[in-house]
């Protein structure tokens, strides 16, 4: 079954324990949730902005709400989920900072994945090509891109530190979605990153 799952989503799925309560924000066609439901017996919920995505999810028997993560996360109570997942979406949010704070409010931890804008080929595109970078996960032109808040691995780390967000773990992925063996110079070599973050516990 994992063959049908995008490799980066499979890496995320390995971070989930059995019987967790999951919210997938921007769950698309529900493949990750369905996989977690079947293999980890997870109690799954989703938010998806597109009607076609919602349609695919409900067909799989998943409970999914059509909504916009920019606005609708406010409707969830504190600590309602053990893990909240936001994969490949944070860079398209209007207020990524508000969204991230919401994710760790709703869930005991958040798993956030995004394309690393510090990747060496991205730097190369801009440095040598003098043009906005494009690749498989950043396929858009500058004028039609939904990715309005791109950041590098380093940017995200700085954001977490400044906002008292604990980075429990981060995983670097290569161009094929493969897990990289080492985090050596990760901001230069990682194509995508997956962060596990949580809020700092109050003493």
């Amino acid at each position: 079954m994992s063959k049908n799952l995008r490799t980066d989503l499979f890496v995320i799925s390995k971070l989930i324990n059995d019987k967790e309560k999951i919210l997938d924000v921007g769950c698309g066609d529900g493949n990750l949730l369905n996989f977690l439901f079947k293999t980890k017996k997870a109690d799954c919920r989703g938010i998806e902005i597109s009607q076609s995505g919602v349609n695919e999810c409900v067909k799989k028997g998943l409970s999914v709400i059509q909504g916009d993560a920019n606005y609708d996360l406010d409707d969830y109570p504190n600590n309602a989920f053990s893990t909240v997942i936001l994969s490949q979406t944070i860079q398209a949010m209007i207020f990524p900072d508000v969204v991230i704070k919401n994710l760790i409010r709703i869930g005991r931890r958040a798993i956030i994945s995004f394309p690393n804008f510090g990747y060496w080929k991205v730097r190369k595109d801009l440095f040598f090509g003098g043009k906005m970078p494009k690749n498989d996960i950043l396929p858009y032109e500058w004028f039609d891109t939904p990715n309005i808040h791109l950041c590098s691995l380093k940017d995200f780390e700085i954001f977490c530190n400044r906002n008292n967000i604990i980075i429990e773990k981060f995983i670097c992925l290569g161009e094929k979605g493969n897990e990289m063996m080492t985090n050596y110079f990760s901001n230069f070599f990682a194509y995508q990153v997956i962060f596990c973050v949580s809020k700092k516990k109050k003493n």
Binding site: Q51, V54, N55, C57, V58, L62, S63, V64, I65, Q66, G67, D72, D75, Y76, P77, A80
Partner: peptide, 21 residues
Amino acid sequence: TKTIIKSLNSSNAMVSFAEVK
């Protein structure tokens, strides 16, 4: 409807929702 869904979310209910254009 979103008001109902908010309540259902806080009750941990199984809820799906679609807004049709």
